[in-house]
């Protein structure tokens, strides 16, 4: 019998970083064999013994000696259990699955990253890729919206990006105390501030569905064509391999034709409720 695609590989947690009060990033190292190298935008299924599995996007790809990094918000049974683990503990990892952010298609374009909340996690490998190959791209902007200043992910890295003189980084929060000096408001308000040229820009958008909906509207309003807007969809997933049926979104399986999807291919169903 051939090996089941559902069989995970054991991975050891080598570091746990608390990003925000409810979100942590774990660094993972294969105990023996490793999964194939994930590309920006792909996800894995993480398995916690006795609890179950959850699809989690890769927030750091294991290249140049870096570990596989995955960022989890403790909202479900699996994610809550995993972010409580300690270095040395093992979990199961299988994948990677799904489509990738169009970092190759974006070659020669201005690139606009729009992230809402935890949506910065799946975008981070794409942002890092673009910045690591900075000369291939035109203007680069990262627009990020979080609930409060305490919910901002990857603060150190945002500061690092902001210090680069060839990246525009804009951060906004929904609500803040006086100490916050940045913007307050929804991330879509940052789109006009980014001042991009619609005919040479490609946008990658990741966040809650309602945030993506308004972001797409803002981008289209600014003249960006649908075929240069990419979104990352979220649906229930049990297998990640197109066999369990849970993640269907119209005729698409989010685990196979997504999670990253070109907007014009899903535009007809994107705003249909409960699809």
């Amino acid at each position: 019998m051939t090996v089941s695609p559902y069989l995970p590989l054991p991975y050891r947690i080598i570091a746990v970083r608390q990003d925000t009060p409810d979100t942590a990033t774990i660094d993972l190292q294969p105990v023996r064999a490793a999964i194939p190298e994930p590309a920006p935008g792909q996800f894995t299924m993480l398995y916690m013994l006795g609890v179950g599995e959850a699809p989690i996007s890769v927030s750091g790809v294991p290249i140049e000696g870096a570990p596989l990094a995955q960022t989890l918000r403790g909202v479900g049974n699996v994610s809550k259990a995993i972010i409580r683990l300690q270095p040395g503990d093992e979990i199961g990892v299988r994948g990677p699955y799904g489509t990738t952010w169009p970092v190759a298609e974006a070659d020669g374009h201005d690139v606009l990253f729009i992230a809402g909340g935890l949506g910065l996690a799946p975008l981070r490998p794409a942002i890092r890729h673009v910045l690591a190959h900075r000369d291939r791209y035109g203007r680069v902007a990262v627009l990020y919206g979080a609930r409060t200043p305490a919910d901002i992910l990857y603060r150190d890295e945002l500061v690092l990006w902001r210090r680069m003189l060839d990246v525009q980084v804009e951060v906004t929060v929904d609500r803040a105390q006086r100490a916050w000096h940045g913007a307050v408001g929804v991330v879509t308000e940052l789109v006009s501030r980014a001042g991009f040229e619609p005919d040479r820009t490609l946008a990658m958008v990741c966040g809650p569905e309602v945030m993506m909906r308004f972001s797409v509207q803002a981008l289209q309003g600014a003249g960006l064509p649908s075929e240069r807007i990419y979104v990352s969809m979220e649906r229930s997933m049990k297998c990640g391999t197109g066999l369990c049926g849970h993640c269907q979104f119209g005729a698409e399986f989010v685990c196979k034709q997504g999670a990253v999807m070109r907007y014009d291919r899903i535009a007809s169903i994107f705003t249909v409720r409960e699809i």
Binding site: S4, L7, P8, E90
Partner: peptide, 18 residues
């Protein structure tokens, strides 16, 4: 049943059915 798994110390052992 797809497979069984056991924790031995901190390690996980996955056992596919044969």
């Amino acid at each position: 049943t797809l497979f069984r798994v056991r924790r031995i110390g901190q390690e996980l052992a996955f056992e596919p059915p044969r």
